[in-house]
Amino acid sequence: MTYSPSTNGKLPDTMPIFPLEGAVLLPGGELPLNIFERRYLAMVDAALGQGRWIGMVQPRQNQGDKEDGIQTLFSIGCAGQISSFSATKDNRYFITLTGACRFSITTELEQADGFRRIKPDFTAFEDDLEPEPLDTRQRADLFRALKDYLGWSGYDADWDALENTPDHALVASMAMACPFAPAEKQALLEASSLVTRTRCLVTMLDMARHDEAETVDHARH
């Protein structure tokens, strides 16, 4: 089952959150998820009945960062709407979240059916709903970095399709798909604007390619 994501001019006052290390959702991006834990099946059921909203947020990597036995979270995540849903015979859900707007966590509410819920604050991130476009030079620099990185890594891409992808969706999909560390993905999420996120992404792609090249050189010697 597929849905058309739409805020209808209103973002949620409360929503469930899915803490998952290394899985960052960005505005304009699409995140496929395989849901099988009972508490997160209940989370999806609740979201489907309340606007289809789920907040993706990373737990802090230090396992000692816990309060009352509950792992602490980064303060900024991204709200997404369920845009596709299917259930399997072995009690799994396959869903896709489409990113809409980042949020900061103001209050964590009492858990419901084992999953965590929050009151989000979207005030600082309302520009996510209408992001500033990249200029020609910025977009060209992004494609240069992508081609260099993917070419060095031995991957290919459908460049015609990417050329026709809107700026925010292109940056989101590349930032989410590339194998960056959780802290690096969090930095991309927290970038102040689409333009700033693009600059960070270009820098990370160039650094990753440089690091891989150095690793190969050391291995040869």
Rank of each mutant, 00 (worst) to 15 (best):
G22A: 11
G22Q: 11
G22W: 10
A23E: 13
A23L: 15
A23S: 15
A23H: 13
V24W: 08
V24M: 11
L25S: 03
L25A: 02
L26H: 01
L26P: 01
L26C: 03
P27G: 08
P27Y: 11
G28N: 09
G28D: 10
G28C: 14
G29Y: 06
G29T: 06
G29D: 05
E30W: 02
E30C: 06
E30I: 08
E30N: 04
E30T: 10
L31N: 00
L31F: 01
L31I: 00
P32R: 00
P32Y: 02
P32M: 04
L33E: 04
L33T: 00
L33S: 02
L33V: 03
L33D: 00
N34M: 13
N34F: 13
N34L: 12
N34Y: 08
N34E: 10
I35D: 06
I35T: 11
I35N: 07
E37C: 00
E37I: 04
R38M: 14
R39K: 09
R39V: 10
Y40P: 02
Y40S: 00
L41G: 00
L41C: 00
A42K: 09
A42V: 09
A42L: 13
A42H: 11
A42W: 07
A42D: 15
A42Y: 10
M43H: 08
M43Q: 14
M43N: 11
M43L: 15
V44H: 04
D45F: 06
D45N: 05
D45C: 02
A46Y: 14
A46T: 14
A47N: 03
A47E: 06
A47V: 08
A47F: 04
A47I: 05
L48C: 06
L48K: 02
L48R: 07
G49P: 05
G49V: 11
Q50S: 15
Q50K: 12
Q50W: 15
Q50M: 14
Q50T: 15
G51P: 03
R52G: 05
R52I: 13
R52H: 10
R52A: 06
R52Y: 06
R52V: 10
R52Q: 06
R52S: 07
W53F: 05
I54E: 01
I54R: 00
I54Q: 01
G55Q: 03
M56K: 01
M56C: 06
V57S: 07
V57W: 11
V57A: 07
V57L: 12
V57I: 14
V57Y: 09
Q58W: 14
Q58H: 14
Q58M: 15
Q58K: 15
Q58L: 13
Q58R: 12
P59V: 12
P59K: 09
R60T: 13
Q61C: 08
Q61N: 09
Q61V: 13
N62G: 08
N62M: 07
